[in-house]
């Protein structure tokens, strides 16, 4: 710790370390990682269930749900990726004229 630091700053840094070190040990423990895994899984499950219910409700009214939009977006992205790939391949074929480097 540099000597020219004021006392209040030294105190804050010491306090932060005093609190921070046990917290860091805790968040690097197996218990913490297991807890985060479980929480993430439960959250995804709850959200998936809620999404399923809302999707069925919206479909009853013949309305598209968020998941439909997402699916459509993913399909569009896949198409765009393929188009980009093809355009790169065509560009490279034009550049080298041999067609070997695709």
């Amino acid at each position: 710790m540099p000597d020219n630091q004021p006392l209040w700053l030294r105190a804050v840094i010491r306090l932060e370390r005093a609190i921070g070190e046990p917290i860091e040990s805790a968040v690097r423990s197996d218990t913490y990682f297991d807890l985060v895994s479980t929480t993430t899984r439960v959250r995804r499950k709850v959200m998936g269930t809620a999404e399923g219910v809302s999707r069925r409700c919206l479909h009853l009214l013949n309305l598209p749900a968020g998941s439909d939009m997402r699916g459509m977006r993913q399909q569009l992205a896949r198409m765009e990726r393929r188009l980009n790939q093809l355009s790169h391949e065509v560009g490279e074929l034009d550049e080298d004229g041999s067609g070997a480097d695709v």
């Binding site: 840094i13 932060e16 921070g20 917290i23 860091e24 968040v27």
Partner: peptide, 17 residues
């Protein structure tokens, strides 16, 4: 962030100084 969740406090204090 979770590698050192409290270190931001000391960083902000140093910043203030």
């Amino acid at each position: 962030y979770m590698l050192a969740p409290t270190v931001e406090v000391a960083q902000k204090a140093t910043f203030l100084e």
